[in-house]
Design a protein around this nucleic acid. Structure first.
Lengths: 108, 108
DNA sequence: TTGACATGATACTATTTGGTACCATTTAAG
DNA sequence: CTTAAATGGTACCAAATAGTATCATGTCAA
């Protein structure tokens, strides 16, 4: 199993989650990812390092570029951890049906 | 839908994930949760506040105790976000079957 | 009422984190 | 070879976070 700590830590930042969505469409270089954000390349690179430490992406040097590639296993591990609560959901979620659609929201 | 940012941020800490597991078995007071950790009650209380801000628990005052209760909707929202990558998994995970069971691990 | 107990809130410190600025390294191309 | 472009790495700063210590508040029980 993949280390959950690094994975959940990597998922905690909205920029990193956006990067994962981008990488789910196509592999991208550091510069390619950076184009979609207003922060510097170095900052984006740091996020990519965190994602790599969380096993969420793989990094491959190709010439002078580095290709960042989504790695689905860690995402699956995170989902598996959440699945441990499924029994709880089955038992108690039915009682909360009316509350589900009344959920408010704020930032993201 | 529930705000993902607060939810993922709350899930990023191992202490908080442990608290969620504990609460999946039974509702607990602040002191009850604190017994399972070596940090102070105040520190545990702070984690509980973060969990509440992430909509992962509900807090109810009962007499001089406060009952902390798991709230499954937010966990489900996080899982739903992860589900957005399912298409990617279906497409690419098969090619990685051999790599899945070769995953190393470190902390948690 | 008095006292013990559980909690909430605040102030303070140390650590982590997100970000920028800057420099070294590698590579493609003339 | 030389030069410019793309990238990686390090140093540094500001802000957020985790934790402790401490005190105030409310509540159960005698």
């Amino acid at each position: 199993m993949i280390a959950l700590q690094g994975t959940f830590r990597a998922l905690a930042d909205p920029t990193r989650r956006d990067i994962l969505v981008m990488l789910s469409r196509e592999d991208m270089t550091v510069a390619g990812v950076s184009e979609h954000f207003e922060m510097t390349r170095a900052a984006v690179k740091k996020h990519l390092v965190v994602l790599e430490e969380g096993h969420l992406i793989s990094v491959r040097r190709q010439g002078r570029e580095t290709i960042n590639k989504l790695r689905p296993q860690a995402l699956k591990s995170a989902q598996d951890w959440l699945n441990h609560f499924s029994d709880f959901w089955d038992t108690h979620l039915d009682n909360l049906k009316s509350a589900v659609e009344a959920e408010g929201d704020d930032t993201k």
